[in-house]
Every structure is written in structure tokens, then in C-alpha cells.
Write a protein that binds this DNA or RNA. Structure first.
Lengths: 193, 193, 193, 193
DNA sequence: TATGAATGAGACTTCATTCAT
DNA sequence: CATGAATGAAGTCTCATTCAT
């Protein structure tokens, strides 16, 4: 499995670091190779092309979110509490890796439409888990029985994403993780409170 | 005022059309010039550089949203109703101009970080109006008195934006405007209903 | 017509010169541009890509052969005499432009199979004229009535080509043009004489 | 003698096969190694470099032609008959090994000028035998006494080569071997018949 | 002998912008 | 005001060859 080879991980990490520092369009393959401590050509032993590196960055890092959300779903907790943990987890992962936050919230968005469609495939697993959580909440009566799952998912993800992007754009100068309880409450009870 | 010159408008419209048809990265200045019926060099009599065209696209088109939201704010209606009109207006404008929807929701997002900061400046006016609406709602008691305006704005905008983007990514194959009442209700009452 | 523009001709000539001096694989676009006195990018205003330059070289230079053979065919001469003029013309053109000789006999042959198929298309016109000449000779009784035109064409062209290539490989150190009478006699009367 | 080692032969055969299937420019060393069932590095225990493999391909395969022509020369037959056997042999060997035909007539020609000079060295033995045959024919009166040996050799080889190449380019869809008598007659008696 | 992971040089092409007319 | 031909910088990827094991 190539993903377990040490150079694979080194290159992915180097890509995050270089993109965060230089921006997407200034992240040349040669810079990434140098940061990873390998030759330019070595990159192509592990990745089909440059786009493939970027997709891998997203896959590898998104896995962190997904894995934890899977754990959360299996916990013996009220659904509302699980939603809270999911939001908090999302904010925490971004808070703990500032480079990752810049890359996912700002830089990777300027990739080509095609790459973004590929990234969306990766996102779908995350959104699928979110859907499962929403269904659970409807079934156990914690959420409104006539909740439109697609719309609710778009609200939850849209809110988390917009909140995260604003935080990054404001140079991460306030504490994102602390916003989790308020975001959670807002999503559950709406603006009427 | 250069904005009133006929070629200025022609070039902006050509840009929307070309970007929607070809994608951001395939929207070369020469293509835009050809579509607008002017020489390449003429572009530079009206715009400082390519980025300047794209910012103008956003400004011109965003103005449609902003102008209408200003009108809405001045109406003699409950705030909640104004919010509904704002959402519906947002969805309607995108529904009525498929090219614009593609350009704002997908293509312009892949512009450079710098350009996106500039675009954000334009967005701020829109978000400012949204803030005003939220403050009004809190003051007249329609919204929760302890509503965090920034978070609420991020939820409203994030939800509208995510809903719009999903609709574009699904090839605009369902009716976006019809979703307005449900989105409105969800934002107001949350998932608990 | 782009072929008449002065830069088009300049670039084609520069290509012949650079390929003859440096060899096919060392004939970088930037070298050709420099020799032609234009910017690298200018090449691409006149040619689709590098391969297109090479095809054009062949087309432009082959036209010299073809045009003269057309004239020869229209002359009021015995067919055998026309064949002689054709051979002599072929040898003369190569003798008069040493660079062209190197390029057509050695360098262009190492192009990709695809390019060589394209070059063959150009050659077909030349071979078609040769076929016409052979048919004329058969009809007026100068050539054997049961001559297989395809084979005869392959003999004539194969012999001219091999003779030319050997001459180039021997550094053009003897007089190619002087061989024309003997080649002509050999083709007409064979080895039995 | 390294040529007798089993891996040497395996690699040469793999090279012919890979070049015929993929074309000269797509015949990477790693592909040849894989086809031969050895590691990339092993190639370099038997060959100095890639060029050396290709020269060996030519040497090994050309030997088949040369060996048989030597046999023919020793036969007790009229020279004209020997020439016929030589032509027929040439066509037969190519007909019996389609890959070899593609490689020698099309693919190896696109090698670098330097490699082709090396290949020519190999060809010289074959052409030397052809010269001997021509001399014999002149001496025993079968061929014209004032035959220019170099020109005659170029005609014979040029014709055989052009005929073979045309046949390969036409996807080997007619019977090459059957052309031998007509080619033979044409070379001996010329176009006047 | 044999392996195969790693190396790193090198070139084609695009396209925003300029400026002489 | 308008033109459009010309510019030239800059980056991804391939693949022959090496060398530690």
C-alpha cells in the first residue's frame, strides 16, 4: 500500500506546508519535492500528477474528520450531543493545524473545476455521515419530523464551512473551537432561539 | 464615468458569458475581447488588468442583489418576512441567469486568494445589509435577544451559499426558488423545528 | 495566407538551418526562434506546435521538387528524357542546399512515426507525379508494356533516395548531380545493361 | 561470450517485441526489462546503455540476412539466380517476422543520427556481400561490364528497402514475397524491359 | 549476479500585457 | 480611441541510468 510508505506521507505533508505558505498557484512541484527532501521525479513514483497530490492531500486530511465522525456516530449519546461533538471536532482539527485550515478553506478552492469535482467525491463521505446523523435525530424525535435532510445538511455544512472560512480570512485571530456551542445552538433552535 | 460607456458593459457581459461557457481557467482575455467585439488591447483602455475585469463582473452583478436587499430593508414588513424576501431574491436572481450562477458559485471561486479577498470586499456590503436586518430582528424581538450577529450572518449566508452551490453542481436541475420557504423556516426555527 | 508572411518563411528557414546544424533532437524551439530573430511565442502565431514547423519545412521544400516535376511533365520531350530531368532535378536541389539535404535525408527521418505518416502525405504528391510519368512511358512505348507501376515507382524513388542518403552520409564529398546520367541509364536498362 | 547468455537473448527479443508494439519512442528501458522478465538494472549488466540494446537488435537480426546471403554466394548457381534468392530471402525473412519488419523498416529509422551511423556499420557487411555478388556478375558477364558497383548496389538495396517499407506502411496486407520475381526482373532489365 | 527505488536535467507551450500604427 | 501582432517568462513531467542492498 503506497499510502503507508514514508515518502508518500512526507510528500503530502510537504504539499500542505508549501501550499499554506506560498498559495496554491505558487506551490510548484519542485518546491514540494525540496520541502519533502526528495527529487522532483520521486514525486511521480507516488503520484500520477500534480493534481493527484492535491487530491491526496484532501483525502488524507479529510480522513481525520471522517474517522472521528464515524466514532461519534457509534457513541451512546443523544443525537444532538453527537452533532455538537461533530461541530467541535471540525473546528478543533482546523484549529490544531493552521496550515491545513488555510489549505482546505482557501487554497484548494481555487483548483480547477475538475479537481473540485474530485474533491467533492471525497466530501460526499463526510456529508453522507452527516445525513445519517440527521436521519437518526429525526427517528428518535430530537429533530423535527418534517426536516428536509438535504436542506438541513446544506445548512449545517454551509454554516460550519462559512464560519471556518471567515475565521481563516480573519487570520485565525479568535478561538474557533469556542464557537462550537453557539453554532450548535443556532443550528438546533434557529434564529428565533 | 467609465462604467456607463457601452464597451465597458459589453466587456463585463462578455466575461460572464465566456467564463460560464469555458470555465475560469479557459477564459482568456482574447476570448473575452472577441466575444465583446473589441480588440484585445481595447480591454486595457477600460480595465487595469484581467483581475480588474473579474472584480468588475462581481461588482456589477452583486449590485443587483444589493440594490434589491436595500429596497427590502426599507419595506414596511416584519423582519422575518424581509429575510424571506432576501433569500427568495437571492435564489431568484441565480435562477434567472444560469451563466451568472455558474460564474459566482463555481468559477470565480477558483480565482487567486488575492482576487478572492477583493471579491470579499464587494461581498461585505451585502453582508453588512444582512447584519442590519439581523439587528433589526433582534431589536423588534423577532429574533432571539442573545443572537450572535456574526454567527447568525455566517449561518444565513453559509446556508444560502451552500444551497446555491449544490444546486449549480447538480446542473440546476431542480427548482431553487421553491426552496426559499423551507430554507427560511429552517434558519428561523432550526432543526428542532 | 500565412505562408506569405515574411516571418513564416523566416521561421521555416531557421528551422532547416538549426536542424541541419544541431540535429533533430537538439533543435529546440527556442533555438529556432532565436535564429529566426523572433520571440519563442511568435512561433506559435504561425505554427500549431513544433511538429507543425517540421511538417511545414517538408511541405515548403518538397514543393520545390513537385513544382519542377510538374513543369517537366508538361514539356514536349520523350518520357525517358523527362525521367532524366526529374532525377537530375532531385539531385540538383539537394546539391544546392546542403542543409536541406541533411534535413530531408537524415534528420527528418527520426521524427515520430506519426509525423512521418504526415510527411508521407506530402510525398504522395511527388510519387503521384512519378506514377503519371511512368504511365506515359508505358503508353508511348518507351517503357515495357508489362511494367508494374507500383514496383517501378518504388525502384525509381528507392534508388534516388538511397543514392542521396549515401551521398549525405559520405559528407556530400562527391558530386551527386553528376551521377544522374548513370542512375538514369541503370533504371532504364537494368543491371544487364 | 555474453551473447550466448540466456538473458542477453531474452532482452534483445523483448526489445524487438516492445518496439514493434509500442513504437520506438514508447519503448522505455523499464518496459523492455519487464517484458524480458528482469529488473531494470539487470539490463545494464548486459548492455552499456539503451543505444547498445538497439544496435544489438539490429546486429542479431541482420545476422539472419547475412548468414543466408553467405550461403547463397557459395552456391553453384548463375549470379542472376543468386540475386533472385537474395531478394526472395530478404522479403521472406521480413514476411515471416512481422515485428521484425516493423522494427527495421519503420521504428529503428527514427533513432538518432548517431545510432543510425552505428546501424549502418552493421549494414555494411550485408552491402559488402551484395557488392561481391555484383562483382561476380560483372566478371562472369551476366551483368553489364561497365556497371557502377556503388550505384548498382544503391539501386538494389534502395529498391528492396523501399518495397519493404511500402509493404509495412500498407499494413503488410499483400504478399511481399511474391513480388520477388518482378523486382528481380526489374532490377536486371530496367524499365525498358 | 540481480534488484528496483531514486535521481534530476531539460523543453514545449500559454497567455496577459504592450505599443507602434 | 482602437487595434492586434509580438513578446517572453515560467513550470510539469519523463525516463535513462545509478547504486546500496
Amino acid at each position: 500500500m503506497k499510502r503507508e510508505k514514508p515518502k508518500y506521507k512526507k510528500i503530502v505533508d510537504a504539499a500542505v506546508s508549501i501550499i499554506a505558505q506560498n498559495g496554491y498557484h505558487q506551490a510548484q512541484v519542485s518546491k514540494i519535492a525540496k520541502e519533502a527532501g526528495v527529487a522532483d521525479g520521486t514525486i511521480y513514483l507516488y503520484f500520477k500528477n500534480k493534481e493527484d497530490i492535491l487530491i491526496s492531500v484532501f483525502q488524507e486530511k479529510m480522513a481525520v474528520f471522517v474517522d472521528y465522525v464515524k466514532e461519534i456516530l457509534d457513541m451512546d449519546l443523544p443525537t444532538s450531543e453527537k452533532l455538537f461533538k461533530m461541530i467541535e471536532n471540525h473546528f478543533r482539527v482546523l484549529s490544531e493545524d493552521h496550515n491545513l485550515a488555510i489549505v482546505t478553506q482557501l487554497e484548494l478552492r481555487q483548483s480547477s473545476k475538475e479537481l473540485r469535482f474530485r474533491i467533492n467525491e471525497v466530501l460526499k463521505e463526510y456529508l453522507g455521515l452527516l445525513d445519517a446523523l440527521l436521519r437518526e435525530g429525526i427517528e428518535n424525535g430530537e429533530f423535527s419530523p418534517d426536516l428536509d435532510i438535504r436542506l438541513a445538511r446544506q445548512m449545517v455544512f454551509g454554516t460550519i464551512d462559512e464560519t471556518s472560512t471567515s475565521w481563516v480570512m480573519n487570520d485565525q485571530k479568535y478561538n474557533l473551537q469556542e464557537l462550537a456551542p453557539r453554532v450548535h445552538k443556532l443550528l438546533l433552535s434557529g434564529m428565533k432561539g
